[in-house]
Design a protein around this nucleic acid. Structure first.
Lengths: 192, 192
DNA sequence: AAAAAAAGTTGAACAAGTTCAACTATAAAA
DNA sequence: TTTTATAGTTGAACTTGTTCAACTTTTTTT
């Protein structure tokens, strides 16, 4: 599917927009290709874009002082991608965004997003809705982390995101679940 | 402080609004008093309002099938309060919102919020910004949950929210941290 | 003021998850 | 294709957090 069509479909699922509006929104996005293992953002630098994944897969993670790897989320085709905090405040990012395979994204810069919002105010509403949905996901994930065991979280993850999990190593999945990869290995062994 | 002044100050911290705009926004909110232990929302019902706490304190939590209590967050004076999912989609809520003490909130209904957004489009932007900030908080909390021990999370909580923690029982704090209250009791005993 | 309910403490046994180290298997690079 | 790096496995000892039950303390209700 054409990259911009994927974006349009994604936007339409959030808010009913005319094709003229969709065109106008899309015109602000530029395509970028990222090779496997390359970074779209590294900890300490400033997030200049908001991204939409058209092809491939990314991992968004932070490294703490002990070098432990906290994966916030994965973003495959049809997912959004950014460090909201750094993008919003133009402050140094605490996150890394790395391509797990050769990927393609649509990017919009902060200035262009502001220009777009000014010229087409309904975009504010669009992003408001997208952010609302994101909050619900984060809340639910927190509840799962508190109420499910590591094994249950693992099964939930692979069942809910079968396509994404196929692209990931167990080490990466463990980082998302908040457990050591050795333990994930033991979980999988005992899986009936 | 007058309830509406607290709300105005809160809104102004998110977006630079004229006093006329602030007046207009406030005019859509109504005051409600809630007695200690009363519920503003119960699991299964539909969230009809978005709330702003003017006085008192609330606990937002869900109960799983085992009766375990997952506290999503506490909302004291100057905090917002709602089940976004239920409010947005008018779907049955998975959350409970209970007053921990006699409290006062400002409420806006879904219809009034829509009317407000129509008559004053900058309100979309205002809520977009508020939601962006909320996402950042949820992401940071997830990272803390993955990278800190229960004791470290406890110390972080009481240091970051000293006023709120004073209003809470250890059982409630344990529910927020995602640990059993017996264990929190042992953590506190060993605290140097 | 007494009774009842809820919150907090403690210990002992247990379960969940970590650490470390040694090893095997797989994938990437030369 | 060989080398090298990375991912995955396993066991043993360990740490963190849970469960249950009995008990004490505090708060709420009557």
């Amino acid at each position: 599917m054409m990259p911009y069509q994927l974006l349009k479909d994604n936007l339409k699922r959030n808010l009913d927009l005319s094709s003229k509006e969709l065109e106008q929104i899309c015109s602000y996005f530029t395509t970028k290709e990222i090779k496997k293992k390359e970074f779209l953002l590294t900890q300490g630098s400033i997030c200049k874009f908001e991204g939409f994944v058209v092809q491939g897969c990314f991992r968004v993670f932070s490294l703490d002082k002990n070098g432990n790897d906290n994966t916030l989320y994965f973003a495959a085709k049809d997912w959004w991608l950014m460090d909201i905090d750094s993008f919003m405040n133009q402050s140094p990012s605490e996150l890394n965004i790395q391509a797990l395979e050769d990927s393609k994204v649509l990017l919009i810069s902060r200035e262009d997003k502001q220009a777009l919002c000014s010229s087409l105010p309904i975009v504010e509403k669009l992003f408001k809705i997208m952010f609302q949905k994101a909050i619900v996901s984060w809340q639910r994930r927190l509840i799962r982390n508190h109420s499910l065991t590591a094994k249950e979280r693992y099964l939930y993850f692979i069942n809910t995101y079968p396509n994404i999990s196929l692209k990931l190593t167990d080490k990466q999945i463990a980082g998302y679940l908040g457990i050591r990869h050795e333990f994930l290995s033991k979980i999988k062994k005992n899986k009936k």
